[in-house]
Design a protein around this nucleic acid. Structure first.
Lengths: 111, 111
DNA sequence: CTCATATATCAATAATCATTTATATACTTA
DNA sequence: TAAGTATATAAATGATTATTGATATATGAG
């Protein structure tokens, strides 16, 4: 088990491609809805489709993208494929982005 | 000064378009480089151009996008236009994204 | 094996976007 | 006003992407 928690010692600047890649995965509203959906509980594709009222190919497409960025985990059980959030820390990060954005908007519209 | 800090009470789900919009602004490596560049100090466009070795129109283009998402503030002084980070809280958020992404990658490559 | 269902992939389309080159605008100085 | 510099915008291009409709693959039931 070599270097545990080496992450916090590495400068942010060296990981900008990685950060940009993850941010791109978070840059679509439907993907964020799917991400929060599978954060509540492990969900099948059809479950997500019904819950979010999106087409099945669209959900599969976005799930593929979320898999590419490792934000979700997959598990096949019978004919169903279940997705769940890979790391719950993404949610407070999204909340922090929301807080920041709303503060910036509030400051912008305050005269 | 109506409802201060109303943000934390609002559910994340209601702000997914906003979050997606900000995330899109963070989804380009050059924009992230510019953002960190103007985080160090207030910088002119030409200063950013030299420091990052990007073309001037490209830097102007990305600065426009960062302005659209309110992540940077602008100030004209003489012929120079200075940009600075609008809210320093974006940096720890980026660091958290980096930590999360590297952890996910490490877990992925651990067998 | 056949059928029904769950999910993934393919093809096509329209839209968005990053980048470059060229040009326009804004400001300062002489 | 004319010239020079700083920045922004425009036009063009190639690349990526979100979405849809059709089809393929995979799994389980009978």
């Amino acid at each position: 088990m070599p270097q545990l928690h080496h992450n916090r010692l590495m400068p942010l600047e060296d990981f900008l491609p990685t950060v940009a890649f993850v941010a791109k995965s978070l840059s679509d509203e439907n993907r964020l809805r799917i991400l929060l959906c599978v954060h509540e509980a492990k969900k099948s594709v059809s479950g997500i489709v019904e819950e979010l009222n999106l087409s099945q190919p669209l959900v599969s497409h976005h799930l593929k993208e979320l898999r590419r960025s490792l934000l979700v985990k997959v598990e096949r059980r019978g004919p169903f494929v279940y997705y769940e959030i890979a790391d719950a820390r993404i949610v407070p990060i999204l909340a922090a982005l929301k807080d920041l954005a709303t503060d910036l908007l509030a400051a912008r519209t305050t005269f």
